[in-house]
Amino acid sequence: MKKAYLGVDVGSISTKGVIIDKNNKILAEAYLWTEGNPIGAVKRLISELANQFEQKKYKVVGVGTTGSARKLTGTILGANVVKNEITAHAIGTTSLYPEVRTIFEIGGQDSKIIIIEDGIVVDYAMNTLCAAGTGAFLTSQARRLGLEVEEFGPLALQSNNPTNIAARCTVFAESDLVHKMQIGHRREDIVAGLCKAVVTNYLNNVGKGKKIKSPIVFQGGVSKNIGVIKAFSDVTKEEIIVDPNSHLLGALGVAILAKNKKSEKDFDFDINEIEFETRGVECKKCANNCEIICVFKDGYLIDSWGNRCENGAIKIKEQS
């Protein structure tokens, strides 16, 4: 039986998972929408991966989780590595592109830039908590234009004269966009303008003060948008590399981290039959009234978080 490693990346919009062997070769992969329900999404993800995976030949001995729901999914899957998505992405990308110097990433709510020298992250920046200019922005604008976000890229390529749209703030961008529509700008020009706005907003905000050197790899959900890729290469005058698996690189990175971890633990694919539930309780022990999230597995409390002080710590009873 050969060893395999599972990496799961649960983001705000989509949930990604891969299983790799000891040479980082992808044995199974899955990609689906989180739909506001990370627990449900992980369960669906695991069963999808289980279907593709030769359970007779391989055995999963390490699990890593990343993405904004990494803590919750890490608890559920009994992960041995729970890592932030920036580190995970950097590791995933450098495993495929050891020469990479700059990683652009635009996801559903976050955008980041990672600067790499000699295979090591030396600097990065992330958007402040405001989600302007991320995937969520493009999705909501697409809705306003009556388009699917998937149609955005090809339509943007048809434009010769992208409309200028102020994208510093999503709310302002939206009113700007409506005005431009009303005075007769063509739809493809507006769409191309939005793609350009995302890029300039990104480079001015997240990328400010950073030396952008090629090779540049672009990833995250927005990297599927060919209009944004084109806008990036127009502005930077460099080739933009987008891996066909660009959406999976965070999951790949965290699977590699799980592989590098010395501790091994057999993973059970049968989590579908287990009932996971979270409950929020308000700790009333002081004026902070922290909201504590408790995670239950088949009715047993397995973890909790959200307390600002020790008063709110919930003791976990050992399960017999």
């Binding site: 932030n84 920036i86 976050d110 992250v121």
Partner: peptide, 12 residues
């Protein structure tokens, strides 16, 4: 969001 930023920063 805060924890992601701090954790990745410390990693770097």
């Amino acid at each position: 969001g805060m924890e992601t930023r701090l954790e990745s920063f410390v990693d770097i």
